[in-house]
């Protein structure tokens, strides 16, 4: 299917916080109570609409274990958005956010939009991190924040879509150089057709892809 833009996302955060489950809920609208372990990286894709434009999200779901950090670092390149996930029932996953953020800022382009996500909001009785703490952390570091539940699907759509909206606004404001693919944004055939200033080759390349 034709799309106006393609955004690359990366999902990061400690192991077991529910990164793969968030992705599965977003792409397949289902929850798997026992998800396979992610080794290396897995992928998802979905089309969304913002401001009447079709936007394809290409999502990189990474392994969370500390040992894999050096591998994960190489996947930030060319990401337009990052979902930084912690588990509201495990304080340590919240405590590690600073190192994740350092990594993300260091290895991505400076305009990458980062959404902080406190996942497992359905497990209120086991909560170890208050919502206010997440909000404060996000405010302090200039991130968008949301609590989600991959299990009940609460806020999952919003988390992915609001991130895209933020990226889209940055494009409108001219913050992103959309012709530089290192920014994690590609222009799709839909857009290229209506925008004569763009080179044909870019649109042509994308046209080869199917839908998601």
């Amino acid at each position: 299917m034709a799309y106006a833009y393609l955004f690359k996302y990366i999902i990061i955060g400690d192991t077991g916080v529910g990164k793969s489950c968030l992705l599965l809920q977003f792409t397949d609208k289902r929850f798997q109570p026992v998800h396979d372990l992610t080794i290396g990286v897995e992928f998802g894709a979905r089309m969304i609409t913002i401001d009447g434009k079709q936007i394809k999200l290409q999502i990189w779901d990474t392994a969370g274990q500390e040992s894999f950090r050096s591998i994960t670092r190489s996947y930030y390149r060319g990401a337009a958005g990052a979902l930084l996930v912690y588990d509201i029932t495990r304080r340590d996953t919240f405590n590690h956010l600073t190192t994740w953020l350092e990594d993300a800022r260091q290895h991505s382009n400076s305009n990458m939009v980062i959404m902080l996500i406190g996942n497992k909001s359905d497990l209120e009785s086991r909560r170890e991190v208050k919502k206010e703490e997440g909000e404060a952390f996000a405010r302090e570091h200039g991130l968008i924040f949301m609590e989600t539940s991959a299990k009940t699907a609460s806020n999952v759509e919003e988390a992915f879509i609001n991130t895209a909206k933020e990226i889209y606004e940055k494009i409108q404001e001219g913050v992103f150089d959309i012709n530089n693919e290192a920014n994690g944004i590609k222009i799709g055939p839909q857009h290229a057709a209506t925008n004569s200033t763009l080179s044909g080759s870019q649109g042509g390349q994308q046209a080869g892809g199917g839908c998601c």
Binding site: H35, D36, L37, E66, D92
Partner: peptide, 21 residues
């Protein structure tokens, strides 16, 4: 001990449940 959690013990427990589920 919390610092050690992710490195081994807790993680093994978590991962066993995610091995050939």
């Amino acid at each position: 001990v919390q610092a050690d959690r992710e490195s081994s013990l807790d993680l093994i427990k978590l991962d066993i449940s995610r091995t050939f589920p």
